[in-house]
Amino acid sequence: MSPDLPPAGVEALRTAVRRAVAAGDRTDARRLRAELRAAERARDAAAPPPEHVPRVPLRERVHRVLALIGVPAAPKLVGAVHHAFLDGPGLSVPRPADLRRAEERAFRSAPDARPYYVCAALTADALTPARGLLALSTWPPETRMIGPRSARTDFLTAAVRVAEHAARLGPDRAERLLRRFAANIPGAAAGGVGTVDAAALAEAARAELAVHAAADARDRARAARRAAARLDAAGLLFGARPAPDRTHGVAR
């Protein structure tokens, strides 16, 4: 049925890999997998896939998105906003911790040498880096504090900014993003099925924001004062060091 049956060597290696995996032999599996890939490459020996070189550095793209929405955000939202408004395909943002670690290294070796750093948002109670969020060093500290209501207020704020931006540019590419916001904000899906009215979305998001804003701002300001008193410059941007794991995966 297939005109292009792979050579027996590839098949044999593939079976050997599965055998090793099934037997729980990780070392063998890894070795055999490498051999298999080599054999496949030798078989294919065709042109390698074109290397994708982004024109604008990643941190700059992340910066543009964060500047647009104005609040700490997770990579997925950053990617979606980038896809909606900025040129090019969806942005595949690396793990926030990795990106922040690189930024922290740069900051520590030459503090404030760059106009901005992609940094952490801090948990209000422990001042440790909040998991999975990216923020900008140029924001006021309270914007980068995450209290118990902040995830929601930031979501609503992002909705307002994205809706306003979409209203200016025309909502075509932002359609999917707007729908997602609208589906999760009460009263935002006023338009007919399939379309979202950006103005109605912004208005609904502002209405809910009014419920939480004052209390959230209070929590954040208090946390920011504590942070200023306790942390050094790097700590303010990248968070208090978490206590290291001493248990090494073994319950005692």
């Binding site: 911790a97 440790t128 880096p129 998991r131 809910e208 978490p242 290291p244 794991d245 248990t247």
Partner: peptide, 20 residues
């Protein structure tokens, strides 16, 4: 209720001990 939006992520970053 709409006001009930508190979200606390109890996991912080990798590397923190389980006791902590």
């Amino acid at each position: 209720a709409v006001a009930e939006v508190f979200y606390d992520d109890l996991a912080v970053e990798d590397g923190e001990s389980r006791e902590a």
